[in-house]
């Protein structure tokens, strides 16, 4: 059952990404291109996604997930250097190619060789991340 609903959620996520235009890199780069021909679509996507999710969080209060277990704990208040440095690196790559992890996977079937190369590079980056984390922590510790 967990796998079935995970598949359904993933499928719905993929359909949403495709319909909203977020697997089209020109639309994502158009949103980030404040100094060019700015495309506001991404704001509608983010707004449209946050709304049902904000309602969902309210439903978690005092309840348990339908399939058992527990809801995620409240977010950690601590920010930390990894959050900022990681987000800056992610944003730089996101702007460069116009793909983030969700759309990179959703567009696998029609993204061609370039999409495959992006996905493989992203997985390589994820593999290197624990080492990068140690390196960043070392730098932050000596600073």
């Amino acid at each position: 059952m967990r796998a079935l609903f995970a598949f359904l959620a993933g499928g719905l996520f993929g359909a949403g990404l495709l319909i909203s235009g977020m697997t089209d890199t020109t639309k994502v780069q158009g949103w980030l291109d404040v100094f060019g021909e700015w495309d506001p679509t991404l704001a509608f996507v983010l707004g449209g996604a946050i709304l049902p999710m904000a309602v969902a969080w309210r439903f978690t209060v005092g309840r348990k997930p339908q399939l058992g277990g527990a809801f995620p704990p409240p977010p950690e208040p601590k920010l930390g250097h990894n959050l900022v440095i990681g987000s800056v690196l992610f944003g730089a790559g996101w702007g460069l190619a116009g793909l983030c992890p969700g759309p990179a996977m959703a567009s696998l079937s029609y993204g061609g060789i370039g999409g495959l190369v992006f996905l493989a590079s992203m997985v390589a980056g994820m593999t290197a991340a624990p080492r990068a984390r140690g390196w960043v922590d070392g730098l932050a510790g000596s600073a």
Binding site: F90, G93, C100, P101, S121, M122, G125, T127, A129, R133
Partner: peptide
């Protein structure tokens, strides 16, 4: 770009 997105999102 892929490397940056992979490392960055995990960090």
């Amino acid at each position: 770009a892929g490397l940056l997105v992979g490392v960055g999102t995990r960090l």
